[in-house]
Amino acid sequence: MSPLHRLFVLAFWAAVIFAYVSAVLPAAEAPHISMWDKLNHMAAFFTITFLARAAYPRLAVLPLFALLAGFGAFIELSQAVPFIHRDAEWDDWFADIVAILVGLVLAWPFAVLANRRRARRASAAQEAPPALDP
């Protein structure tokens, strides 16, 4: 695994943890970039989706979509727990899904480039002469 790939994997999991913790914190304490809650959801899920495509480019789009949409639903179900003191809204989940779809579309060229790069490295490794042992 290249250092850049490791960075994407680390950034993806950090973003997932950050998003979940932010979602279950009391609303007044949760970090946000906008006063409009849906924009916060969309920014978070767009970022997570883009990082997921970079971190796991071999993962097919449909399973990735399902996993990320499931994560959004899990956040909403977590917010429905009374002691969390947050409001679960299916509109938030819809905003997550829209952001996931946009993220998948915009990250697609990068995933294609990553697959081509990986294929070139694999073919170069196969063509390289074996190392001589002393």
Rank of each mutant, 00 (worst) to 15 (best):
L59H: 09
W108I: 09
F74G: 08
A95M: 04
R53N: 05
R58E: 08
I75L: 02
L64P: 01
A55D: 04
L62I: 11
L106E: 12
S78L: 10
L62Q: 10
A80W: 10
F83N: 14
D92I: 07
F74V: 14
L59M: 13
L77M: 13
W90H: 13
L104A: 06
I100L: 09
L59S: 08
I84R: 03
I97P: 01
A60E: 11
A60W: 13
A52P: 04
I97R: 03
L68H: 02
W90D: 11
A107Y: 03
D92R: 02
I48S: 00
R53D: 01
F50G: 01
F94S: 12
P57S: 11
L104S: 07
A52E: 02
F50W: 08
A107Q: 04
I84P: 02
V98T: 11
I84S: 03
I97G: 03
R58D: 07
I84M: 11
A60I: 15
L77H: 05
L104G: 06
W93A: 04
R58S: 06
T49S: 05
P57T: 08
L67H: 12
A95C: 08
E76H: 05
Q79Y: 08
E76Y: 04
A107F: 02
A107I: 06
E76G: 03
A99K: 00
Y56T: 07
I100D: 00
P82T: 12
T49H: 03
L68G: 01
G72N: 01
V98Y: 03
V81C: 15
V98H: 06
Y56L: 10
E89H: 12
A52N: 08
A66R: 15
W90G: 09
L64S: 04
D96C: 09
A52H: 05
L51D: 00
T49K: 01
Q79P: 04
G72K: 00
V98E: 06
L104C: 13
V61T: 05
F94P: 06
F65S: 10
A60L: 13
